[in-house]
Nucleic acid binder design. Structure first.
Lengths: 351, 351
DNA sequence: TTGTAGGCGTTATCAG
DNA sequence: CTGATAACGCCTACAA
């Protein structure tokens, strides 16, 4: 850790002078200030928040009490918090804007506010991971990067879920499948790996079984989600089963299909993979889903990180957590002799 | 603030001995330990996390980086974080289980991890507020308690929204209204004020206008939400307009009504007040909603708290933020001569 | 304009 | 088993 004293030494001034420029609390000659700033920069100095807090008796932190109601889909956060507590640690949620995460994450560690970091929404090539590595800061991922060498992560096994879903649908006689994934290009999540991996797996699995597999990328945008039904009907009218890996698209999709008199699951079966919201139950018909055990993800990630902090050595924790299928009423046998979706409207009698 | 030294003095031991029992780091005679524990208890001592962190070079905190994507309805958290940052503060989210919030909240302050607290999901009589007051800890509420004397709060003006909704619907000729609110009895949110206040306002507003107003209390539970449509049809078949103040019930309600061939808004108009999720757009038809400006709530609450921390005196910040109506397609003129809802199924031709 | 030194509340080492 | 005492890194009078 770089201290003020080290900065002072390098700049040939006393520690108080450094304090003055760091805090802008007293005037300092431009030249000395310059030297100090140079030293700070060269050494990568960050003021230690803990020491500052102790000296000033103010932490400069305000806390938003964040009640863990089941409602917030935070079984995940809850389990992480519980795991931390069990180890004598506290979990804090550090809100960051997507654009400056990489910067914040290192300052969080260097300033001493936290000992380690848990990362969410990990991208294939994640800048935050790079920064943490070079800062030598302990971290664990929920999700994973392309290169997982030596790093702790706990991830959902999207490959397993996707393969399982394809097998399951194929077993029911479906031969024309579609996959709906979220389009992240142009958003802060570009490069987000789960959709990418799911797509890959889907293409392989369908190819292996000799099935027809179409992929639809849909941005997170109500209009696009509503348009999806149209797109699907127009571009892949032979489809009999859809795998959706997109939190919100399922709503628009079901509504759009209903409007077109497509019967679910009579004409078309739908499976949703790892939906973040538990609203599937409220859709009519209830969705068949592959659910990720949020608690296990959060808990194991926190444990891995803390084990690290406690000085445990050995191989990194690298876990894939399987999703489990929960049967709703949105999947059925493949229809026989069903006309193409785009002609269905005039043929079908009842949705 | 109570320090170890004070505990030591009261127990007639040295500060190190206190440290030993607090941290269980060395054996101590049962008698002295007893004296120390007594002193700790009597003085309300809490180990200062900052000093401890400085001495041990470990904060015992792990951070979960919490990306603020628009998706998570955290315009609210985002604004609070931004407001804090603008004032040289950091916002942290402190996850707590609903059952021990009151205990956590004071230890959070006493341990020096945070300077002040923002409270969500405030109840009419909130234990946390009582604790914070007696601990003399700075706080601000998002929401409000029954007694708001001298405390900073920013709340949604549910009264305004409810009154406005009743007026709006009455203006369209509706005379048989229903209000759907969340049932919190038996949950951690029992006594939660918004539904209570909305109910009160609804009863007054309908009475003032000579309208018929029915109230339905629905737990947050998919089954109950689906049953709501049935309940409504059976118990208040003359209803022509519903005001929903229940995040999820609207889904079940719309689906349930559709199944019963109730046309929206032909037979029945629906308005949703301050839905936490923006999924209203995905319902068919799009819901007319009263939306609370989350950013304003979070931002102003954080500002009020920090102003306090910075020593500003004067009257407390007490703000009611108005909701704004966003027209969807779920509201129409009151139907004339529509049969009771419970007989509608056989009469209506199309949903 | 810059430096010195005491203190913030704990922990940890080393004596008793 | 218990007690002094020197850190931890920074802030802030007070002095120079």
């Amino acid at each position: 850790m770089v201290t003020m004293q080290q900065v002072a030494d390098r700049a040939n001034v006393s520690i108080s002078t450094v304090s003055f420029v760091v805090n802008n609390t007293k005037p300092v000659t431009p030249q000395t200030r310059e030297r100090i700033l140079e030293a700070i920069d060269a050494l990568g100095y960050r003021r230690n928040a803990t020491a500052r807090a102790l000296a000033t008796r103010r932490s400069h932190v305000i806390a938003l009490l964040y009640p863990l109601m089941e409602r917030n889909l935070n079984s995940f956060v809850e389990a992480a918090a519980a795991a931390a507590e069990a180890q004598g640690y506290h979990l804090m949620l550090w809100p960051v804007r997507p654009d400056n995460q990489a910067a914040e994450v290192t300052s969080l560690i260097k300033s001493g506010i936290a000992d380690g970091v848990l990362l969410l929404e990990v991208q294939l090539d994640d800048e935050r991971v790079a920064k943490l590595r070079e800062a030598n800061a302990p971290f664990a991922l929920i999700g994973r990067t392309r290169d997982t060498d030596g790093i702790d992560f706990v991830d959902i096994d999207f490959e397993q879920a996707t393969t399982d879903a394809v097998d399951y649908l194929a077993g029911l006689g479906h031969r024309q499948l579609a996959l709906v994934i979220e389009e992240f290009d142009g958003t802060a999540l570009a490069g987000y790996s789960p959709p990418t991996r799911a797509e890959q797996t889907f293409r392989n699995a369908t190819a292996d079984l000799g099935l027809d597999g179409r992929v639809f990328r849909v941005p997170r945008d109500p209009l696009a989600e509503l348009a999806l039904a149209h797109q699907l009907v127009e571009q892949a009218p032979q489809t009999t089963a859809i795998i959706v890996m997109h939190d919100e698209a399922s709503f628009g999709l079901v509504n759009g299909l209903r409007r077109r008199a497509v019967a679910i699951p009579g004409d078309l079966s739908i499976v949703s993979i790892a939906p973040a919201t538990a609203l599937g139950l409220l859709i009519d018909p209830g969705l068949t889903t592959y659910d990720a055990p949020g608690g296990e993800l959060g808990g194991r990630a926190a444990e891995a990180l803390i084990a690290h902090l406690k000085g445990r050595d050995g191989p990194p924790t690298q876990v894939l957590v399987a999703c489990q299928r929960h049967d709703g009423a949105s999947v059925g046998l493949a229809p026989t002799g069903r006309p193409p979706l785009d002609t269905l409207q005039s043929v079908s009698t009842k949705g």
